[in-house]
Design a protein around this nucleic acid. Structure first.
Length: 147
DNA sequence: GCAAGTAATAATT
DNA sequence: AATTATTACTTGC
């Protein structure tokens, strides 16, 4: 069973999807609400605390994208280690993994279905801000919020 | 020196 | 074989 719920937040509509155990995805749009669940309520309340600058970390079960490769998983693990308010460059992540896959990091981040909870907005380019699947405006606001 | 253009790099679909 | 949310190097101003 898939649960889905959308709410109007500080950044506009956000839709979160989950199954019985964990969060599956987060996207910036108004979606179709199906069933709600304890988990979704918790996710939204943590999210609102985060927007109100009362929360810096999330305590939620997250599920990886459908097909996770070893590489993607290590990238995600590194991203989740980034502390609140800090940013890291694509290159630095590659170095942490003893790899030179600068571009593949970007690809992995783009594959990420759960922005904010997996803080891919804290990953920026060395000279440019980088990209964001659901719009750069959102990425900037998130960084501004944590600053 | 600085700005813009280009090749190179690794992993996924 | 093409694509990617990059980087480092080269050239022209």
């Amino acid at each position: 069973m898939i649960y889905s719920k959308s709410e109007m937040t500080h950044l506009g509509w956000i839709e979160i999807k989950a199954n019985e155990n964990s969060i599956i995805s987060l996207s910036f749009k108004k979606g179709y609400d199906t069933l709600s669940s304890q988990l979704l309520d918790k996710a939204f309340s943590e999210l609102n605390e985060y927007f109100a600058r009362k929360r810096e970390t999330f305590d939620l079960p997250l599920s990886y994208p459908q097909k996770v490769t070893t590489f993607q998983k290590s990238v995600i693990e590194e991203i989740k280690k980034i502390p609140y308010g800090e940013t890291i460059s694509y290159k630095e992540i590659a170095e942490k993994l003893n790899s030179k896959a600068y571009r593949a990091i970007g690809t992995a981040c783009g594959k990420n279905q759960i922005p904010i909870f997996i803080p891919c907005h804290r990953v920026v380019g060395k000279n440019n801000i980088g990209g964001f699947r659901d719009g750069l405006a959102i990425k900037r606001k998130l960084l501004e919020l944590e600053h």
